[in-house]
């Protein structure tokens, strides 16, 4: 029984080591991942995030900044077509 336990430990150790080395070898020889975009364009041309100061329209006299916004209203066109 004791011999059987020792043999099982050795078998598990050898099998684990073999699996680890096999995995290592396979990954070492696999193709390298390609960049998903042209390296020359790797830096995205995002617009700068607006500064908070850009949003401040002025002081409302109450001690705090007043944030104003520009409303770009939907402008439908009057159109005559026949009814």
């Amino acid at each position: 029984m004791k011999f059987f336990k020792s043999a099982l430990r050795v078998w598990i150790t050898v099998a684990s080591l073999f699996g680890f080395l096999t995995g290592w070898a396979v990954l070492a020889h696999s193709p390298k991942p390609q960049p998903y975009m042209d390296p020359s364009r790797a830096t995205l041309g995002l617009d700068p995030v607006p500064q908070f100061s850009d949003l401040i329209g002025g002081d409302d006299g109450l001690g705090g900044p007043r944030i104003t916004r520009t409303v770009r209203a939907f402008t439908p066109r009057f159109r005559t077509a026949g009814s």
Binding site: T80, A81, G82
Partner: peptide, 11 residues
């Protein structure tokens, strides 16, 4: 006022 007149051949 601007009023567009739709082309009856092409809505």
């Amino acid at each position: 006022w601007d009023v567009a007149l739709e082309d009856p051949r092409d809505p």
